[in-house]
Amino acid sequence: MPPPSATPPLLVQRPAGLYVPAADLHIDPVRPVERAVITHGHGDHARPGHGAVLATPETLAIMAVRYGPDHAGATQPLPYGRSLDLGAVRLRLVPAGHVIGSAQIVLDSGGMRAVVSGDYKRAPDPTTPPFEPVPCDLFVTEATFGLPVFRHPPIGHELARLAASRAAFPDRPHLIGAYALGKAQRLIASLRESGEAGPIYLHGALERLCALYTELGVELGPLRPLREAGAADLAGALVLAPPSALGDRWQRRLGDPVTGLASGWMRVRARARQRNVELPLVISDHADWDELTATIAEIAPARLWVTHGQEEALVHWARGLGIDAEPLSLQGYTDEGDGAGETEAPA
């Protein structure tokens, strides 16, 4: 728990999540609340059942696709960069570079500024504008990959490995597990940038969100539902599925696929082995250690709160820089967006 200060705090921790008292507003609450602001559409941050929800238009669109149009009593879209006055607090959403519509929440009040970054990354992603560093007094950072062993290679490096495997096994389909929101579309868009023009086959669970990305103006090229593919189409095909569906019975129609998984956890061999895949691809939508530390050094906040992930190492590192760093014990957030899948505890 952060120590109490003389002026009423801009941000506090409550059982439902981070809370802004002056605006009566929860950030990414893990249970239904009256008023919520949502950083991004991943299921552990964006939940249904709130009274009113404030978020980017893209995040609201994702929530509507996932939970139906009535997921909240009322919704209010707030595009990036526009400010909103809520009581004594001025609120602004700034790109977080994590998935489409992902936002950092910038809170200004009485000359103090807090930034809740949600999940973020610094690596380029054709599906979302880049993370924008905002100088502040209190920075709340994630720490999913908060250990110095986590360094994600450039995505081009991993796509080259996928291409090499496809060249080595030209007749086998390549089945890649990628989280349904963000990872799958980033993978597709990056493949397109690298010159892949052919059809990409989708497991049913990816279709709606890919369609939404296309509606939101992200170019994904020719996508085909896997269920419509004939046996001849599948030789050497590229197939995407959610990680939780890998190894399930539906994939028997693929015969003898090379199975891959796109996730930051694939950096560590033991984790990759656990997933039973032949082609571990180190592709993550979360900041790696270098991005986390570079971001904190760049923003240089007086205080740092570290949440969901490997808090300990990052707190240790930040204190070494003279930053007043504290781990937050927020419950209910997982590493969902990195495709760790159904059987793994958040780590």
């Binding site: 250990l147 110095p148 062993v149 986590f150 360094r151 950096r267 560590v268 061999r269 033991a270 490997q310 300990e312 190492a313 240790h316 590192w317 070494g320």
Partner: peptide, 26 residues
């Protein structure tokens, strides 16, 4: 090259010395 606390936390997580060194090497 590496802060001993960060190395210890990392080694504990990865579980293999060679792999930890390879991954953490700055």
């Amino acid at each position: 090259r590496v802060d001993p606390v960060l190395f210890a936390l990392s080694y504990d997580y990865v579980g293999d010395l060679a792999e930890t060194v390879a991954l953490i090497w700055p």
